[in-house]
């Protein structure tokens, strides 16, 4: 039996997208009233929930307090029911710690932390259903949640994964593609300035192809940012209509 054909000669991927097309993105902001900010985001079959508390006073060990900026605290987790096989995922396993760290780094680059010295911002993200691109979906959801909380950011942070198949980059990989032995790369971008907040890749890839991958990832991120922008404007409109009444 042959494996899956990731990119057909006609240029279609397993799920019918073309190489540069993203999955369908749907999002909602302000899903929880008690948190300071929250958002729910679907990218294809990957679904994530992000909640933001803060900025507030430092909790726990005071020693981490920074006098010039706010500390960002991220926590990533996956629901037991998020994959095909139900699996208990203890807190603080290696994978989620790493992911939390990546999220933290991403948002330290985007949030204007210097405005809130001696305080802390908590970002909690949970994957409800996983179908590839967990990191990027978390980043996108958390961006919306941070915006919902009213915390100033330099720009949206948009993230996207890109894989490399048959000499061409594929944007926004789904699980079947990710597990098909593709070298993939995750990139978080501040789209307006074109600054890269985070770039992560564990796979082997020849150096010559890196530029085209990053190029493709940046275009994909800009696509995501358009969608997010629309969601924010829509949300703003709804909220302002409500408050006027």
């Amino acid at each position: 039996m042959a494996g899956l054909e990731l990119l057909s000669d006609q240029g279609y991927r397993i799920d019918g997208r073309k190489a540069t097309e993203l999955r369908k993105v749907q999002a909602r902001m302000g899903v929880f009233a008690q948190a300071d900010g929250s958002a729910y985001l679907e990218q294809g079959n990957t679904k994530a929930l992000a909640v933001v508390y803060g900025p507030h006073e430092m909790r726990g060990s005071r020693s981490r307090t920074r006098h010039d900026r706010a500390v960002i605290n991220c926590q990533y987790s996956m629901a037991t029911f998020s994959t095909a096989e139900r699996k208990r995922r203890p807190h603080g396993d290696r994978k989620s710690t790493e992911m939390s760290l990546h999220l933290k780094q991403t948002f330290e680059a985007a949030i204007m932390t210097q405005l809130y010295p001696r305080s802390q911002i908590d970002i909690y993200v949970k994957i409800l259903q996983s179908d590839g691109g967990n990191y990027s979906v978390c980043v996108n959801a958390a961006t919306l949640a941070v915006i919902d909380a009213g915390i100033p950011m330099r720009d949206y942070v948009c993230a996207c994964t890109v894989g490399f198949v048959d000499e061409s980059p594929l944007a926004d990989l789904c699980y079947a593609e990710e597990s098909g032995g593709v070298s993939s790369l995750a990139l978080a971008l501040l789209p307006r300035s074109g600054q890269i907040a985070l770039l992560q890749m564990d796979a082997r890839l020849h150096q010559d192809n890196l530029d085209s991958m990053i190029e493709a990832a940046m275009t994909a991120c800009k696509g995501v940012s358009k969608v997010l922008d629309e969601v924010v404007r829509q949300h703003l409109q709804e909220v302002s209509v409500l408050s006027r009444e």
């Binding site: 799920d15 019918g16 294809g44 096989e85 789904c174 079947a176």
Partner: peptide, 13 residues
């Protein structure tokens, strides 16, 4: 041996 449910997206164009 195990039975796993696999969900895939399918885009129509």
């Amino acid at each position: 041996g195990g039975v796993v449910k696999i969900v895939r997206e399918h885009y129509l164009r």
